[in-house]
């Protein structure tokens, strides 16, 4: 019988990302969950922020597909190493569709309690994503300077 922890986390790829069932975000994650990640406002967000992030990405990449390459359970934690692909056919922020296909990877550590996710720490290859979209080429000769 499959580990319930793994079954829960697998729904993020199978149901939410790949089938587009965004309502399932409320089934796998607690309302007051804390989501840490560079794609969250100020680096930390809520379940609602997570859902909005997924909706935004799926609007820009309607064929978004997420695969957990590995799921490692340990006590109340599940570590997911994942890959994601998608084709940029919708507007993404103020960036018009490029038609480009992208592929990135990431790792998320989920903390579970009461059968749902209550905290997550995520890092993903955002720089790789923008590069594949033809944006955000790193520095290369651009004058250094601080940003405020």
């Amino acid at each position: 019988m499959e580990d319930a922890r793994l079954a829960l986390v697998s729904r993020i790829a199978d149901d939410i990302w790949n089938r587009g069932d965004l309502d399932a975000t409320a089934e796998v994650m607690a309302a007051d969950a804390v989501y840490h990640g560079p794609h969250m406002p100020d680096g930390v967000g809520t379940r609602r922020d997570w859902r909005e992030h997924i909706a935004r990405v799926r609007a820009a990449f309607p064929d978004s597909h997420v695969t957990f390459e590995a799921l490692v359970p340990c006590g109340d934690l599940v570590v997911g190493r994942w890959s994601a692909t998608g084709t940029h056919t919708g507007a993404f922020g103020d960036r018009s569709p490029t038609g480009r296909g992208i592929s990135i990877g990431g790792i998320t550590i989920y903390r579970l309690s009461g059968g749902v996710i209550v905290e997550a720490w995520e890092q993903l290859d955002l720089l790789g994503m923008w590069r594949q979209l033809g944006a955000a080429e790193p520095a290369g000769g651009r004058p250094a300077g601080k940003r405020d």
């Binding site: 680096g43 993404f92 922020g93 960036r95 955002l126 923008w130 520095a139 651009r142 601080k146 940003r147």
Partner: peptide
Amino acid sequence: EEWEQADIMGLMRQLGAPEGPDGAT
């Protein structure tokens, strides 16, 4: 400069590299 951030994209931004179009992710 001294900075704090938690990702490579954030690092490059902090060091003055261009952002994604609107900073969206």
